[in-house]
Design a binder for these strands. Structure first.
Lengths: 248, 248
DNA sequence: TTTGCCTAGATTGTATGCAATCTAAGCCCG
DNA sequence: CGGGCTTAGATTGCATACAATCTAGGCAAA
């Protein structure tokens, strides 16, 4: 209780304004912040995450940063090379297809499980989510698309949560985060990457407890998203990454 | 090249005989060793893994041990409590059911994917695996059952590998490791936890490219394994764990 | 005897220092 | 002028020191 203010709590230390919740787990907090930044695409694939730099940003030592980076590496959001450091992952087209294959494999089962546990409160949660999507969709601007993709993922995440299996839920969280990376890399800006109507239709099928139909809708929804990607291996992409990252 | 032999290389230091591969990743090596020990049930659920102790065992510093423990925690094989340490996970009955629910959800999809990529070499690999199972099955003794369970898991793992999706494969690896924990906790020693004939039948269906039948066989195989568990919440189990773990 | 507090030891969380490795700029040589 | 080598700086891997916290045992009071 004494030494804690060595770290922060005085407002003008200018960094740390967020982490450093007294006794909480700071590595986890940093991990979450970095993950948000990655799935929100504020950190582009290929970006290097320098341990010292990140540490300075959050005002913690490299020890803590390394724990956060290791966790994200395990989640597949970073790739780390020995003695070289950690980089925001840039999935290959094959890996991108694997992500969507995995989702097509898992999510229909999720539908079946979710229907069994679907009560009024769950339906209400789904409706609230759709409204949120609607809200986001009517906005414009640079970060509107970011929010749109996030909101879209949240629908699928809610499906996983309703299914009520913590393990599968974590798998889905990982798959959704990876999806965000894939869309960041291969998404064609022109097309709306995640049709909003799809979600509404899926929910309708869920409410009717029509697992078969909901699954079909879900799968074609995923097909649709994947079709909007440009997964051809163009020579420029590996090059751009070989150049060492970042958007600029 | 100079400092390395500070660590090991002289035979009578009595520890280190295995880790410390020059430039390799020692945390990963320790992680793998610990995981083997857990899924082989040499480390019982609830066992505490003391950082200093593990470090002394492998002759590395706590820094490296912590990385290994963090990885295993992420995989769900350990649970770690802040300021208290890491323990071999002991899944609750609910979590145990979640493991098998997840496998029932994923493995049928695995069958479908595997059949698409099933060639002569894959079939040969399956046959070799079954022979290995046979071999293990005919052995007796204390560690025969351990090997049996391991071999059984390997069949499912091979299925995941043949399916050719690295992400799903990793999910399956995690689920199989957790299955081993669950069986360790709730398995009834009397019943053969994983019928060997089941695998042969599944393979037969795979060879006929009958995905429907293979899936059905697989699911009832999983049902069978789960049925052999005793998932009733007996008052003694939480108590025994509250007492602080270990078998004795 | 039991309950509660308190202190000493053990254990984990974090920062920091040093060695190993990588990276990039400068230099020599062709 | 271009290419390979060398070296200084930057960065990661690891060990260790110290701080924060937990745990266990003893002691006193009810």
């Amino acid at each position: 209780m004494r030494v804690l203010q060595t770290r922060c709590t005085d407002g003008f230390r200018s960094r740390c304004h967020w982490i450093t919740r007294g006794g909480e787990d700071r590595a986890a907090a940093i991990r979450d912040r970095l993950r948000d930044a990655i799935v929100d695409r504020r950190l582009a694939p290929g970006t290097k995450l320098n341990e010292t730099e990140v540490g300075a940003l959050f005002d913690v030592s490299r020890t803590v940063v390394r724990a956060a980076l290791q966790a994200l590496t395990y989640e597949g959001l970073l790739t780390s090379e020995r003695n070289r450091g950690a980089f925001v992952a840039s999935p290959t087209p094959d890996e991108a297809r694997h992500v969507f294959d995995a989702r097509r494999l898992i999510e229909p089962g999720l539908v079946a499980a979710a229907i069994k546990r679907l009560g009024p409160s769950e339906i209400a949660a789904f409706r609230a989510r759709l409204e949120e999507e609607d809200h986001v969709l009517h906005q414009t601007g640079p970060m509107a698309r970011r929010a749109e993709i996030n909101a879209s993922g949240d629908f699928h995440l809610l499906l996983a949560r309703v299914a009520g299996n913590a393990i599968i839920q974590r798998f889905m969280e990982e798959l959704l985060a990876r999806s965000s990376l894939v869309i960041a890399l291969y998404g064609r800006s022109g097309a709306s990457s995640c049709g909003h109507g799809d979600h509404a239709n899926i929910l309708a099928a869920l409410e009717q407890r029509d697992a078969e139909r909901a699954s079909q809708l879900l799968v074609s929804h995923l097909d649709h998203i994947e079709a909007d990607l440009d997964l051809r291996t163009k020579g420029s992409l590996p090059l751009r990454e070989a150049l060492g990252g970042r958007a600029g």
